[in-house]
Every structure is written in C-alpha cells, then in structure tokens.
Amino acid sequence: MNRPYQQPGQGSREQRRAARRAAEKRSAATASEPPKAVPQQSAEAFCLMWYACECGHRERIWNSRDGVTPFGMSCPSCGEAKLFHVNFGRDTYAPDHVPRNGQRIWISMSKDRARQIARRTAERIAAARKVKIDDAMVERIATEIYRDGAAPDIVVWGYVEAE
C-alpha cells in the first residue's frame, strides 16, 4: 500500500540547486569562524523535524529547545491524533533557524501554561467523575505537566491572541 505521508518530499531541481548554493555560501562565510560548542542532551535538540498524518497533512516543526519532543499529536487538518514524527533521518540540526509566521515550534513548558492545561484536565476529570475541583488538584496536575520546565509545549510562531 502506498503511503504518501511517509514518503520524503522532493523539490524541483532548481530548488535543490538553490539550497545547495545557499548552504555553500553559508559554510564559506563561517569557515573562518571557530565552531560553536553547543552541549546537547537530546538528539532532537534544535532540529527541524517532519511530522505527517495519514490524511496527507505534512509539516516541519522546529524544536527550539534542548529536549525531546512528543512522537505524535493531534493533526491540525483532520483533528485525529495521527500526526507523527516521520523520516527521522531527515531531521535537520538548525540552532539558528528563524521560524516563519504560522510555523509551529516546540518550546519549553511555562508554569502558567501548565496550569491552564491542568485546569482543563481537572474540569474533564470532575465532569466524568462528578467531583469538585479544588486548587490542590489543579496544582498536582500542573506540577506533573510542568516537570520543572522540561516538558515540551507547541506554539504557532507569530500568533497573537485577539482581544
């Protein structure tokens, strides 16, 4: 069975040549500079990674942090939890990547964001079990989500909440 969502994308010949020339220019410009030593704990640190879904949706998500990322998540196109990290060999180390507006990126979890997620989780638990939500429950859940800032969170670069 052909699964196009698992096939690496091929650009046009002109695109590949332009990308190669740009990479050569960058390497020539930085040849006189000493290499930067960046201690990394994770192989996924600062990488551009391909995620794909069975519905055909593909996107490249940047990991802006030195930490692991989830293997799968909900697809923004079909809503199913079938968007998976694919083509690990095509992950590109890009510590100086500047995301374009609308690109999703992995960032480190903040305490406030962990509390928002914990509040929603507590509300679902309370509705299912018909129990009351208390602040201690929300804080316990938030602590598990936050994990001292090591947990990943995904955001859309350039997105601003409307007021």
Score class of each variant (00 low, 15 high):
Ala126Met: 07
Phe71Ser: 02
Thr92His: 15
Ala45Cys: 09
Asp153Trp: 03
Ala136Ile: 12
Lys132Gly: 11
Trp50Asp: 15
Val38Tyr: 12
Asn87Arg: 15
Ala18Trp: 06
Phe71Cys: 01
Ala22Phe: 07
Lys132Met: 06
Met1Ile: 11
Val68Cys: 02
Glu59Ala: 11
Ser64Cys: 11
Lys111Arg: 11
Glu54Gln: 08
His57Leu: 11
Ser27Met: 15
Thr30Leu: 14
Arg100Val: 06
Val98His: 06
Pro39Asn: 12
Val131Glu: 14
Pro4Met: 06
His85Asn: 12
Ile133Gln: 04
Ile141Gln: 07
Met49Tyr: 01
Ala122Trp: 05
Lys25Pro: 04
Ser77His: 09
His97Gly: 09
Glu59Lys: 09
Met73Ala: 03
Asp91Ile: 13
Ala114Phe: 05
Ala114Val: 01
Gln40Glu: 13
Pro152His: 05
Pro70Trp: 12
Glu44Asn: 14
Gly89Trp: 10
Phe71Gly: 02
Ile145Pro: 03
Lys82His: 08
Ser64Tyr: 07
Ala127Pro: 07
Tyr159Met: 10
Arg3Trp: 10
Ser110Pro: 08
Arg147Val: 00
Arg119Gly: 01
Arg129Met: 14
Val68Leu: 05
Arg120Ala: 10
Met49Lys: 02
Arg120Ser: 11
Val160Pro: 02
Gly72Glu: 08
Val138Ala: 07
Ala126Val: 02
Gly11Asp: 01
Thr143Ile: 02
Lys25Glu: 15
Glu123Tyr: 05
Ala128His: 14
Tyr159Cys: 09
Ala19Phe: 10
Glu163Thr: 14
Arg17Pro: 02
Ala127Gly: 13
Gly72Asn: 09
Arg129Glu: 13
Thr143Asp: 13
Asn2Ile: 06
Ala118Thr: 03
Arg60Tyr: 10
Arg147Phe: 00
Gly72Lys: 03
Phe84Arg: 11
Pro76Asp: 04
Phe84Met: 10
Asp112Lys: 12
Pro35Trp: 01
Pro8Lys: 14
Arg90Pro: 05
Ser32Gln: 01
Cys75Thr: 06
Lys111Ser: 10
Ala142Asn: 02
Glu14Gln: 07
Gly9Lys: 12
Arg115Leu: 03
Gly56Glu: 09
Arg104Trp: 09
Ala136Leu: 06
Val131Thr: 13
Gly67Asn: 03
Met137Asn: 11
Phe71Gln: 08
Ile154Pro: 04
Arg58Lys: 15
Ile107Thr: 13
Ala136Lys: 12
Pro152Thr: 07
Ser27Trp: 14
Ala22Gly: 12
Ala118Phe: 07
Cys78Ile: 00
Arg3Glu: 13
Leu48Met: 12
Thr121Pro: 01
Gly149Ser: 00
Cys47Gln: 06
Ala150Leu: 00
Cys47Val: 05
Arg60Cys: 14
Trp106His: 03
Val131Ser: 09
Glu33Ala: 04
Trp157Ser: 11
Ala31Ser: 12
Tyr5Gly: 11
Asp148Gly: 00
Ala150Pro: 00
Pro8Val: 10
Met137Trp: 09
Cys55His: 03
Met137Phe: 13
Arg104Ala: 02
Ile107His: 01
His85Met: 11
Phe71Glu: 09
Ala31Pro: 01
Arg113Ala: 06
Arg16Asp: 13
Asp148Cys: 00
Cys47Ser: 12
Ala28Gly: 08
His57Val: 08
Gln103Arg: 09
Tyr5Val: 08
Thr143Gly: 10
Ile117Ser: 05
Val138Phe: 04
Gly89Asp: 09
Gly72Met: 08
Arg147Lys: 08
Asn101Ser: 15
Arg17Ala: 13
Ser12Glu: 03
Glu14Pro: 02
Cys47Met: 10
Ala127Arg: 15
Leu83Trp: 04
